[in-house]
């Protein structure tokens, strides 16, 4: 075989081999670099903010759920704010000599919002409503 034939033969072999290996590489695509790279900083560029964002969102969601559960529950009580003006008027009427003239329905209408905390009960601490308002 002369040198020209040799070169031609080698070129054909090279073309055939390269074509076959290219077809193989097309059929078996490489997995993403980040899937095989074991480094911590090898996450996809631009996706580095995802984990902190998810963590922040989760913390916010938990905080909102807790706030809604524990604070939202007392919303009705807070909404029923005590009308200070009516209470003062009632107290004045009850402290006057004609306190017995205060209509009972006004007294019944005055209902303080329920306490959420238990108050200590002192034994023998028995004070009438009138005394307590004075």
């Amino acid at each position: 075989m002369n040198p020209r034939d040799h070169d031609h033969d080698e070129a054909r072999l090279k073309t055939a081999l390269a074509g076959a290996l290219q077809a193989r590489d097309r059929a078996l695509r490489a997995p993403a670099f980040h899937r095989l790279w074991p480094g911590e900083d090898a996450r996809a560029p631009g996706a580095g903010w995802l984990r902190p964002a998810f963590a922040s969102a989760a913390v916010l969601a938990v905080a909102a759920a807790l706030a809604w559960t524990y604070l939202g529950r007392h919303e009705d009580g807070a909404a029923r704010a005590v009308d200070l003006r009516a209470t003062t008027e009632l107290a004045r009427e009850l402290s006057a000599p004609g306190y017995w003239r205060v209509p009972s329905d006004e007294l019944l209408a005055f209902a303080a919002p329920p306490l959420s905390a238990e108050l200590p009960v002192a034994e023998g601490f028995d004070v009438s409503l009138e005394e307590s308002l004075l």
Partner: peptide, 12 residues
């Protein structure tokens, strides 16, 4: 590797 061409499969 499922190489598509018969010729390429033969070379491989």
């Amino acid at each position: 590797d499922p190489v598509p061409g018969r010729e390429q499969a033969r070379v491989l």
